[in-house]
Design a protein around this nucleic acid. Structure first.
Length: 469
RNA sequence: GGCCCCAUCGUCUAGCGGUCCAGGACGUCGCCCUUUCACGGCGAAAACACGGGUUCGAGUCCCGUUGGGGUCACCA
C-alpha cells in the first residue's frame, strides 16, 4: 500500500464484488474512475470485494478483469483482494471497541427479528436498538458482533461532486455491524479501511451507495482519518425507466462483445456519453475523453440505456476500424482459415458500410464463402423470374468473354448487356445479385463479381440460368 | 412507509439569470445520391412536468405539488 509521501493527488478505484459478470453499470463506474484518474495524472486502482466468500467465484473475477481489459481500462499495479485484509479490518474494529466507538452486541437473530416485527406492527421505521450499546463488560463465551456506536445527535453533510450537498440526520444512521460474529468484516467496514489504506482520494461509485457514504463517514470520523471526496453517479436504467435488469441489458460486457457484436471503442464512447456530456461532442476518442472528462458535467438524474444509439455508434466505429482487424473478428464466426481472410479483408470496405454489429458484418460476408449451388433466400428467389433468367444468361455470355476481370471492365460489360437487352440496369443487376449472393442486399454488384472471381461468378450465374425444378 | 436524491424533444444530452420563439446526437418521417441494401448529404416533426415566488428579466435561483429513482441485512 502507498505511503503518505509518494501519494499522487488523485487516487481512484473500482471495487466490484465478484458475484457475477462485469455488468454495464459497473463498466461505466470503472470508466469514470479510470477517466478521472487519467485526467488528473493520478492512479486508478482495482480492488476485488470478495468479502462474501460463498458468492465470490474465480470465474467472476476473471470475467471482470477480462471485461476491463477489453475496454482498455488498465489499472495501476496489481489488483487487490479485500479478503487479504481481514486481519487489518478486525484490528480496526477492535481499536474502535477499545476507544468506546463501537460495542459488542450479543443480541440473537431472534431478538433482532422480534424488534423488527414490533417496528413493523407499530408502523414505524426499524432501527436497531441494542441493549448492549452501553454495556462495556464482555460476556464470556457468548457470540457477539461488533457494532458501531453511531452518533445520535446532529447531522452529517457530504459535499458530493455529483449530487451536491447532501444532509442526513445522524439519528437516521443505525448501529450497523462492523465485525460479524465469525470475526469477518462487513462490507461497510472493509471499504472504509481499504480505501484509507490504499490512499484513495476520490470515491466515484453508483448512486446506490450514497446512503452508505454516511455510514462509512461515521467510521472514518471515528478513526480520525481524512475524508475522501465522494462522487455518486446516477444509475443506468432500462429502456422502460425501471432499474436495469437482466432482460434489459445488464448483460456482462462479454455479451456486448460476443453476442451483440460490439467494438470496445463503441461501448467506451457510448458509456462515456451516458450521463456525461461535453457540448455537442458525440464521437469522442479515448485521448479526447481523458482530456475532457470531469465530474462537474456528470448528470444528476439516471439515464436510460438506448441500444439503438449504441448500435449506431458501433456502426460508426466499424466503418472506422482497420479492415484486417475486422476480418480477424468475423473469421471465427464464419469458420474460416487464415487463407480466406485475404479476400475478406479485400471485401471489407464494401461490407463494413452496411453493418452495425460484428454479427451483421459476418452475415454480410457469408456469401463470399458459400458453397454452390447457393441457397437462395425466399425474398430473393422472387426476383429470379422467367424474364430474369434469359437476362442473366446474356450477362453470363458477355462476362465469359471478358478479357480483364476487374471492377471497371465488369461494370462496362454489365451496362452494355442491359442496354443491348433494352432494360434498365436494375432489371439485370438485381437478379444477378440473387444468383451471386442468394440475397437481395449486398455490396455493389460489380464489386461482388470482382470479389468472387471469374470462375466462381460464372458458375453461380450458370446455376440460376435455368429453373431448378 | 421512513430517509435521501432527481426532473429540457420518445432516448442520450447542451444550457452554469438576458445572446434560448431552447442547440447537438440517436430514433422517426421526407428528399437527394443510387443496380439493391447501406453509407453519405439536405430537411421536417419533436422538450424546458405543474403551481407559486425572487428578479427589470427564469430552462437557469427558492418553495410546494406531481412523477421517477435509490436505500433501509451479521449482501456487497
Amino acid at each position: 500500500m502507498t505511503s503518505e509521501s509518494e501519494q499522487p493527488a488523485v487516487v481512484t478505484r473500482f471495487a466490484p464484488s465478484p458475484t457475477g459478470f462485469l455488468h454495464i453499470g459497473g463498466a461505466r463506474t470503472a470508466l469514470f474512475n479510470w477517466l478521472f484518474a487519467k485526467h488528473h495524472g493520478g492512479k486508478f486502482l482495482l480492488r476485488i470485494e470478495d468479502t462474501d466468500r460463498v458468492r465470490s467465484t474465480k470465474e467472476a473475477i476473471e470475467a471482470i478483469l477480462d471485461g476491463m481489459r477489453w475496454l482498455g481500462l488498465d489499472w495501476d499495479g496489481h489488483e487487490y483482494y479485500q479478503s487479504q485484509f481481514w486481519a487489518r479490518h478486525a484490528e480496526i474494529a477492535h481499536r474502535m471497541l477499545d476507544r468506546g466507538q463501537a460495542y459488542r452486541c450479543y443480541m440473537t437473530q431472534e431478538e433482532l427479528a422480534a424488534q423488527r416485527e414490533q417496528a413493523q406492527r407499530e408502523r414505524r421505521p426499524f432501527r436497531i436498538e441494542s441493549p448492549w450499546r452501553d454495556v462495556p463488560e464482555e460476556q464470556a463465551g457468548k457470540p457477539f458482533v461488533i457494532r458501531l456506536k453511531a452518533p445520535r445527535e446532529g447531522e452529517t453533510n457530504i459535499d458530493d461532486r455529483v449530487q451536491g450537498r447532501v444532509t442526513v440526520q445522524n439519528a437516521e444512521i443505525d448501529d450497523f455491524v462492523l465485525l460479524r460474529s465469525d470475526g469477518t468484516p462487513t462490507y461497510m467496514l472493509a471499504v472504509v479501511v481499504d480505501d484509507h489504506d490504499m490512499g484513495v482520494t476520490h470515491v466515484i461509485r453508483g448512486d446506490d451507495h450514497l446512503n452508505n457514504a454516511f455510514r462509512q463517514l461515521a467510521i472514518i470520523r471515528a478513526m480520525g482519518w481524512s475524508e475522501p471526496i465522494y462522487a455518486h453517479v446516477p444509475l443506468i436504467h432500462g429502456p422502460d425507466g425501471a432499474k436495469l435488469s437482466k432482460r434489459h441489458g445488464a448483460l456482462g460486457v462479454d455479451s456486448y462483445r460476443d453476442e451483440l457484436g460490439m467494438l470496445p471503442e463503441a461501448v467506451f464512447n457510448y458509456l462515456l456519453r451516458l450521463g456525461w456530456g461535453h457540448g455537442d461532442a458525440e464521437i469522442i476518442s479515448r485521448d479526447q475523453a481523458i482530456e475532457w472528462f470531469d465530474l462537474y458535467h456528470v448528470g444528476k438524474s439516471p439515464s436510460r440505456f438506448d441500444f439503438k444509439k449504441l448500435e449506431n455508434l458501433n456502426g460508426h466505429y466499424i466503418r472506422e476500424a482497420d479492415d484486417g482487424r475486422l476480418a480477424d473478428l468475423i473469421a471465427p464466426k464464419l469458420g474460416l482459415k487464415d487463407k480466406s481472410k485475404e479476400i475478406l479483408a479485400r471485401a471489407m470496405p464494401q461490407l463494413k458500410a452496411r453493418a452495425h454489429t460484428i454479427s451483421e458484418l459476418a452475415d454480410g460476408a457469408r456469401f463470399l464463402f458459400a458453397d454452390r449451388p447457393l441457397e437462395i433466400e425466399d425474398s430473393a428467389a422472387a426476383l429470379l423470374t422467367g424474364d430474369a433468367r434469359p437476362l442473366i444468361g446474356a450477362a453470363h455470355g458477355s462476362l465469359a468473354a471478358l478479357a480483364e476481370w476487374d471492377s471497371a471492365p465488369l461494370e462496362a460489360c454489365i451496362r452494355e448487356v442491359a442496354e443491348a437487352s433494352g432494360v434498365k440496369l436494375g432489371k439485370l443487376a438485381q437478379p444477378l445479385r440473387v444468383a451471386l449472393t442468394g440475397r437481395t442486399t449486398s455490396p455493389g454488384i460489380f464489386d461482388v463479381l470482382a470479389l468472387l472471381g471469374r470462375d466462381e461468378s460464372l458458375a453461380r450465374i450458370a446455376d440460376q440460368m435455368e429453373p431448378n425444378e
